[in-house]
Design a protein around this nucleic acid. Structure first.
Lengths: 154, 154
DNA sequence: GTTGAAACGGCCAGACA
DNA sequence: TGTCTGGCCGTTTCAAC
């Protein structure tokens, strides 16, 4: 896990390419960044062991699978319910993200469900841990997957 | 883009495998799900053209790249500022997600930055569009990338 | 769906600067 | 150290079934 070692231009290109298409063959990747296949593989292995590349994941369309509702639930829970709450949400399939936020022991959950009825059930389950504030996602006008701009600029 | 065509067991396994490791060779994928290489590829191509598989992306550790701060910014903007706001956030590199939420023209932004100073600058830029409420992410106790449970259960 | 053959890519060892 | 070359083996692709 390097922290301060600067990336060179080739590393950045590799990250951008793999971010956009994780299945690109290493030989093709090498061609795009101006490296031989083995050198390209070497770079990628280095980026992986440095902790910059964490894995390669297919993007699955949950909407097409029937999970038509995405919602954010904000919930404040006091110190005594903190640990039990973290254990509990691990057991909830609908919770795909949980962030601990600044501001009064607040948690933000991103949840995915197939109906508003399921959302209501989930909210009821959360009630023992705090007062949830729920917002359903109407649309997502911006969803960046390629972190190209975070890599190229600055 | 099929909506209702049910997935069979093999399709589900393929989605789970590619979700966990998008770089697995199709021949190996076929072995894991009990299919010949060409049949496995055929399945994947079908899932892609059905819109269930959207792409394959490397997971890049933004923290290791110096983006130490992730924050959520909630912002309410009225109807007249709606369109200009959407245009404006496209130009902000730090904004990696924007969701339109239920409840009073609210937007939720996920932003990634390298310092609190940068966060302050960003908030100031957003002020003309509405009153932002900012929460910094302290930790992320749950971040599911494999949607295995969403595919297997129910 | 499968099989089989040819082209291609992944990966290891060794040489080079 | 980082890169290139060559060779082996697994993978991809495409045709025919």
């Amino acid at each position: 896990m390097r922290q301060d070692t600067r990336l060179d231009e080739i590393d950045r290109k590799i990250l951008i390419e793999l971010s956009a298409n994780a299945r690109v063959p290493f030989a093709e990747l090498g061609r795009r960044v101006g490296l031989s296949p083995s050198a390209a593989i070497e770079r990628v292995r280095q980026l992986e062991s440095d902790g910059l590349l964490h894995g390669y994941h297919a993007e699955i369309d949950l909407k097409a699978l029937g999970y038509s509702i995405t919602a954010f639930i904000r919930l404040t829970c006091d110190g005594t319910r903190y640990r039990p709450f973290l254990k509990f949400i691990q057991t909830l399939d609908q919770v795909v993200e949980c962030h601990h936020l600044t501001g009064g022991d607040a948690f933000l959950l991103r949840v995915v469900l197939s109906s508003t009825a399921e959302l209501e059930q989930l909210i009821e389950k959360l009630l023992p841990y705090g007062m949830p504030t729920t917002s359903i996602v109407l649309s997502t006008p911006l969803q960046r997957r390629q972190d190209a701009h975070l890599l190229t600029k600055r």
